[in-house]
Design a protein around this nucleic acid. Structure first.
Lengths: 224, 224
DNA sequence: GGTATAATCAAGCAATCACTTGACTACTTG
DNA sequence: CAAGTAGTCAAGTGATTGCTTGATTATACC
């Protein structure tokens, strides 16, 4: 009665979900896919891996149920299968931030010294936006902006920021945001802006956190 | 600037948290530890593994930051390092329930047909308890009851239930609970009680979910 | 129909993992 | 200090994993 075999099989099924996120590259994929759906070759470039390897990782994620795909012409677009996946990814980062010893060091090595960079909370940003005295920059790659962004934000991918510095309004403070708490783009944008003498801060968290909180978002209509 | 190496290292650190839960046996350990701290030999028995293997799994969990240990005499007690770990475990079960194809089949194979078994929500149980017309049975192993249980519940480990059937009050309905939504104990208890003609149901979820919701709990004082 | 592009598949290699067995260490009790 | 109990350590084995390379499939465009 209530065999150990059935119990083991059930818990193996649970752990298969964890196992698939037990690869840094697949975790990066989930982090990018939390911004919206993307085709394989773009995902490969984002995570700096070969297309073949990225494809296999994506199929692994799909077999485990975390992502789904759809074909459009020659491209295959992958997306997270639901919001619970993004919540799981957040729970993982949360545990790591609290209990993984060297995480702070690694985050600083990648993101720079975050204690020097003051951030705006979601509530603070909403207030400033309705007061109309900030300009909000979405510094993620453009496809991510297309599939969803903070309502009222302007798309200035980090790569283009240098070229577009002159066009920024200089009467309002700049707030940059990107993929989430461990995304570099916003940090580098703020640093670049400040070097130019433009007052800038970053939003705490990123687009997925904003959307999950039910705050106003908008998206370009998806072309079918 | 913003090297791929540093990024990979950061995401590898995140995925190390997921990786450690990517073993069914470690997942079982976390599920048991969510009930409270336990010594190694008891944990080994709960998950049906050798002490040596269990010890290695626990150390793996500890190196990854998910659990901590303390020595008391000859025994070493392990516990979860914080509530975020229990939340992560819940997030994993959540994703699996929503997106893993064969999960329902596996859960039914282990737990029995859950559609036949109506459950009480936390709110319903609270109401019934304050009305005083239910008796609440904690059917987990006794050490788990000791380290924390629903306020007002009675400890009747599943193993002892058969012997203690006669002593149950027959004027009130019985509600059983155990470790969580995928724990068999409560289901088997309900089944056994009904065969004896005693009206019984199980609580939706288990002790950790009750405690996480901030509902009233009590515990035997821990002997140091 | 032929060519180009996007993605998958298949084979292979080094590295890691889960579990076993048997020896060893740490603490308690007599 | 000897004996007993709880837990860890170390070595070994078969299985799985992450990534590479080169070939193959599916769709779009000329």
């Amino acid at each position: 009665m209530s065999s150990r075999k059935a119990k083991d099989a059930l818990f193996d099924a649970f752990s298969s979900v964890a196992k698939v996120l037990g690869s840094g590259r697949r975790a990066e994929l989930v982090d990018v896919l939390a911004q919206g759906e993307r085709p394989v070759d773009e995902l490969a470039q984002e995570i700096g891996q070969s297309v073949a390897n990225t494809s296999q990782h994506l199929q692994h994620l799909q077999r485990s149920g975390l992502v789904r795909s759809r074909r459009q012409g020659t491209r295959i677009y992958y997306r997270l299968s639901g919001s619970s996946v993004a919540e799981l990814w957040a729970a993982i980062r949360n545990v790591a931030a609290e209990h993984v010893a060297e995480l702070d060091k690694l985050a600083t090595a990648y993101l720079g010294d975050r204690s020097a960079l003051d951030t705006l909370t979601q509530a603070e940003l909403r207030e400033r936006m309705s007061a109309g005295d900030v300009v909000v920059l979405d510094v993620r790659p453009e496809p991510e902006f297309q599939s969803g962004h903070i309502a009222g934000a302007v798309s200035v991918p980090l790569k283009d920021l240098g070229a577009r510095l002159r066009n920024l309004p200089d009467d309002r403070q700049v707030v940059a945001y990107c993929r989430g708490p461990y995304c570099v783009f916003a940090n580098e944008a703020v640093q670049m802006l400040r070097l130019e003498g433009i007052p800038a801060t970053r939003l705490e968290g990123g687009y997925p956190e904003w959307a999950a909180a039910g705050l106003p978002v908008e998206a370009a209509p998806r072309q079918e």
